[in-house]
Design a protein around this nucleic acid. Structure first.
Lengths: 196, 196, 196, 196
DNA sequence: CTATAACCGAGACGGTACGTCAGGTCTTCGC
DNA sequence: GCGAAGACCTGACGTACCGTCTCGGTTATAG
């Protein structure tokens, strides 16, 4: 026997839900930095200790709140045509990043700058799933011979996600479908002029 | 000399220097978020009021401290060959982003997520100069006909800077010259396989 | 049917003993105020509920712990000579008050200042027994005609016990047999000088 | 010159007054134990830090609050007749102990049971002044030859103060002038019956 | 001899207050 | 008369216990 069930009360999922809901709502109102544990506890009708018991810091509560609200699986387009696949993929990514939750995503990446452990969780929970979807699309394209076999796929991923997230965070440009399409084109054909 | 000196002490440039130096040093030790005004004041041997008098918040002190330490003009390569220009440009950008000061740059972008006014200053002081250099390189290339005339230059800029900054902030990949070269290649030629 | 025996296990005297023992030991280490229910429960290897089930607050647990540890009956001296009786009585009282348990006694009287109900229990359980012994000695002395028949016995009791407990609590003087003897003398003969 | 005046703002006596007034009022409403720093700060319209800056714990704030409210000097009766002096002295002591502030006095003595440093301050600030008055009365009586020259004055002081404070704290008897007179009589003449 | 209910340990829960830190404002006084 | 020093109010931090409650296991009596 490896696992002995403990006696006593279990984690209250009512409280957990209330905490995550309160947190998500607060995150939509103001930056993570300004969302205090006390505010979450108070809004959720919960003691602070209950939060500290289950999460190491407010950043993790926030991460849980956001990632549990992103239940929909990220679709992996498979039209047979790489450019179309990429357009679909990055179109939906752009939709996400330009939404309220995309904004929160950016703030999480900001939080990760001063908390390396959080950065790890952030990558695992929010970043990698979306990245993995794109990775599969590129793999399939490579297998079909539609993209160069020598490509550094990770660099490609960074080019495309990086551009969107950079716009999201630096706020110097718009985030819309047109931009996504423009980026996919550049990525596919390159910028060098085709002579002849 | 056209400026008549007023009586009484002016803004003490001694204090200013001490404040900026103290701030820069603290920024190298820990994230902006953890650098308190009190710590800066104490380290600089200065009253808190002196800081509040000249800067609206610690983020701006930090911005000043970093940008005044970046005195070297960003070089605009002009070899005549676009790919070489880009390689040089993004090689040096990569060197910056992977340095201590690059790390601080990332943290400033993080700070901008919860302070829109700061985001504006950040873009003006740190982001645009580097971006402008790249913009000129691309313009020249376009004029020479080495890159397509229909390109959205802003998108190109975001693709390349975004990728590096994204790596810097998300920490999922390395930041080195090889990566920069790889990205320039992808950008130039695109990922689509060249048939025939 | 007046009394129906309930099913199920009875009060566990093992737990009770463990609780009282743990409490007494903790009381010897630190003031009642700093002895938490959680500490008692943990030290006794018992759930908090078991304590709350049988005692209304930690003060009562403590009262039980101390009073059950004072099993020896307070002896009522009867030498035939009032002064000797009083010396013996207050000598032993002084011994008690200057002991570890006397210290705890003082802390209970302190606790009584902010809990009137506890004050009642404290008087009944700890104060009155000792007082009653003294009362009997004084009664016998009065019957023998060795002390004035008009005396307010309660005032006499307070004079003598009050002096000792006051020293115990205020800590401005020593608590020893010499003091007790000195007090008995003053009490017996008064302080007024005897002319002629 | 040994003391260099510091720059910067001085202690705000407005805040200090507000804190002491709030504390005294709260002390009249509930036991010291139940008067929280937060309640004092809130009632005084003051930050908690201001309290922590100037007093080591709430007990000292309370001590300050009470002792600064006891401005009247304790009168030292001098009628020429020792018994009358004592009656006056202990009459007024009884009046104090049976007042609201006397109740607070008792609670301070309770607090002293779990804080030895506070006990010292308590003795110096509240206990000794009153004790000193009584000591002088007894000294004069001794010089006049009205009381025995061999008396342990400290013991006499404890007998009389102890009795009153004990009644105050244990709550088993009343605190009024009659009791005070009764105690003075016992103290003066002793309890032993005067044969012929 | 079983089944049922009170008891128990463990400990999660909503709270209150703790003592600390830093924020941003305001005041005093030395140079 | 500037500016260092620092007191002030505010608000959040993370912790300790409070007293209540809920589990699952154990035990002793009632049926």
């Amino acid at each position: 026997m490896t696992e002995s069930k403990k006696r006593g009360p279990r984690r209250s999922s009512e409280s957990e839900q209330a905490i995550l809901a309160a947190t998500l709502q607060l995150l939509k109102e103001k930056p993570l930095r300004d969302v205090s544990i006390e505010a979450i506890a108070s809004k959720a009708g919960v003691g602070k200790m209950t939060i500290y018991k289950w999460w190491p810091s407010r950043a993790y509560v926030a991460l849980d709140a956001l990632s549990k609200s992103l239940t929909k699986k990220i679709p992996i387009p498979d039209t047979g045509d790489t450019k179309k696949d990429l357009e679909e993929l990055f179109g939906s990514a752009m939709a996400f990043f330009s939404s309220k939750k995309g904004l929160i995503f950016g703030r999480f990446l900001a939080e990760a700058q001063s908390d390396p452990k959080f950065a790890v969780s952030f990558r695992e929970r929010l970043l990698n799933p979306r990245r993995e979807a794109a990775r599969q699309v590129l793999h399939r394209a490579m297998e079909r011979g539609e993209i160069e076999r020598t490509l550094e796929i990770e660099s490609v991923l960074d080019l495309i996600f990086g551009a969107m997230i950079f716009r999201l965070m630096a706020g110097h440009g718009t985030l819309n479908k047109t931009e996504a399409m423009s980026m996919v084109s550049i990525l596919m054909e390159g910028i060098a002029s085709k002579k002849i």
